[in-house]
Design a protein around this nucleic acid. Structure first.
Length: 531
DNA sequence: CACATTGCGTGCGGAATAAA
DNA sequence: TTTATTCCGCACGCAATGTG
């Protein structure tokens, strides 16, 4: 046993000197390590002087890292020293084993730091559940308190700083994240998004040369006041994002142009379906009934039955049978008195067809829409039209038109990265609508500016975009850029990419989701900066 | 926040040890 | 032997830590 001891010290407290392990005993649930401190002297926490005069000793029981799911307790004999320093206010003090214990600590330092890591990664409740599994169960409060006790992370003075907002409570409470764009690390979190707060923060760090921000006015103002020496950059991520939003609005406005022009795909079905000339398309109930009757009557006549007998068998008037027998095809009979009579709905049918193609199959909603446009009658006829005519038609005559969002995505994707079929569809849409084609050209030149750092071309781009007719959202976007021209030109000319900043905003969103409800801003801040 | 647990500071007194 | 000093265990109250 005596030869084992030094090895146990090595194994259990390898990095610690002055700890001697006496014995280890394990039960089902716990492991108990008997150990004692062997240092000759200890430092008085009151005056800082070393003392070797032992006053007494006692056992303390710090919890240690669990092994194999069993909790570990060290039964550690520590000594109390007499402080010989006359000027010191205290008479005795308890020794601490550096790296193992701290004053008042109920856990070893390594268990403590492990719990802190769990807290930083998972925060309160989730972390507490983790510690159960881990074998050192603690409450969520303890984890949060451990995080709170962490020293404030040192805030470095960055050269290129990224600024963005994040939501603590979406729509209500917003804060500001600051990122060192060069090291890609978050440097600080501010509890609000006021220009004053940002200005004060920046003013304390005169070394800042470049501020990457979005075009929110409070950040522009804060940066101007707090870091007048710095170049402001409207970051490219946001520029591109905002362009995307403007583009989607434009496309949505022109959503009527998205249906591909009735070119090649529409012709073959027309040829393949000569019945298209018939006023009653297949699928219509009346037409089906007439076709069925026509077939039955002609079959019976061909089988040798007399017209009178057929009429008796089918419960029809002789006249009816005569009418059917004279018609060679059922289509000849599609000439009822209601046929091709004008209805009040006629004026709205093209609109209804369009909406149906767009995917709106809710008759009530369609009725509400055309009622807005002046349709005087009730819901009934609209329902009939939808259920008989539109629903009877196999809905997509030709491919469904792409959604505004899809077209926007194609517009914003580099042409080379676009799938073949999307490229063809996009080409068709642009050929169909000159305004969208203009939009596409602007998006492409903007993309070129963004990727090739061609900020000097911006004024020209803005002028052209503002003049583009039929694209008010693009005009507005260009107008906004013009108002922040210097920063945007800088953003398009500098290599700083602030996708980094956006990444951190997303990470905060995730951390926040794991954050114990009342833990508050300070804890969130520590987790963002330390985790 | 209220409450429980446990480390800490302190003094007391007996035992051990050293010096007179 | 007496006396001084140190060691050591104990009890008590305070305060830091931990829990729900």
């Amino acid at each position: 046993m005596n030869e084992v001891r030094p090895e146990l010290d090595e194994l259990l407290f390898s990095s610690l000197e002055n700890v001697l392990v006496e014995s280890v005993e394990a039960t089902d649930m716990t492991v108990r390590i008997e150990a004692l401190s062997t240092a000759r002297q200890a430092t008085c926490p009151g005056c800082g002087y070393l003392s070797g005069r032992i006053h007494g000793s006692y056992l303390r029981f710090p919890h240690d890292l669990p092994t194999t799911g069993r909790s570990v307790v060290v039964a550690l004999r520590v000594r109390r020293f007499v402080c010989a320093e006359g000027s010191c206010s205290r008479k005795t003090f308890a020794e601490q084993v550096p790296g193992l214990t701290r004053r008042f600590g109920r856990r070893t330092e390594r268990l403590r730091s492990t719990l802190i890591s769990i807290g930083l990664a998972l925060a309160g409740r989730a972390g507490a559940r983790m510690t159960d599994v881990f074998g050192a169960p603690v409450s969520r409060n303890t984890l949060l308190r451990l995080i709170a006790s962490l020293p404030d992370p040192p805030i470095t003075a960055p050269r290129v700083v990224g600024v963005d907002e994040y939501a603590q409570r979406k729509g209500r409470i917003y804060g500001t994240v600051l990122v060192d764009v060069e090291t890609r690390r978050p440097i600080d979190l501010l509890p609000d998004r006021e220009a004053d707060t940002l200005a004060a923060w920046l003013a304390e760090r005169p070394g800042i040369e470049i501020v990457c921000r979005d075009r929110a006015p409070f950040f522009a103002e804060g940066a101007t006041r707090g870091a007048p020496q710095a170049i402001q950059i409207a970051d490219r991520w946001h520029l591109w994002h905002n362009l995307g939003e403007a583009a989607e609005k434009c496309v949505h406005r022109h959503r009527g142009c998205l249906r591909p022009a009735p070119a090649p795909p529409d012709e073959p079905p027309e040829e393949a379906e000569p019945a298209a000339s018939s006023p009653w398309p297949t699928g219509h109930r009346f037409a089906e009934r007439t076709r069925a009757k026509h077939a039955t009557i002609h079959a019976l006549l061909k089988a040798g039955h007399s017209k009178r007998s057929v009429a008796r068998q089918l419960g029809m008037t002789l006249n009816t049978v005569l009418r059917f027998s004279r018609a060679a095809t059922p289509e000849e009979l599609f000439t009822g008195q209601w046929q091709s009579r004008a209805t009040k709905l006629d004026a709205y049918k093209p609109y209804l067809d369009l909406r149906w193609q767009e995917g709106c199959t809710n008759a009530w909603k369609l009725w509400e829409e055309i009622r807005e446009q002046g349709y005087p009658d009730g819901y009934g006829n609209v329902r009939n039209y939808v259920s008989r005519t539109l629903r009877g038609k196999p809905q997509p005559v030709g491919p469904r038109p792409p959604s505004a969002r899809a077209v926007t995505r194609w517009l914003l994707t580099h042409p080379d990265a676009l799938v073949e079929s999307h490229r063809i569809q996009l080409k068709a849409v642009l050929a169909n609508c000159p305004e969208l084609d203009v939009l596409a050209k602007h998006v492409r030149t903007f993309a070129h500016m963004v990727t090739d750092l061609q900020g000097d071309q911006l004024p020209e781009w803005i002028e052209s975009a503002r003049a583009a007719t039929g694209l008010p959202s693009l005009n507005r976007f260009a107008h906004h850029l013009e108002r922040d021209l210097d920063a945007v030109v800088a953003g398009l000319s500098q290599p700083w990419n602030s996708g980094v900043v956006e990444g951190h905003v997303n990470r905060i969103k995730m951390l926040k989701r794991q954050m114990f409800g009342r833990a508050g801003f300070e804890l969130l801040r520590k987790r963002v900066l330390l985790a």
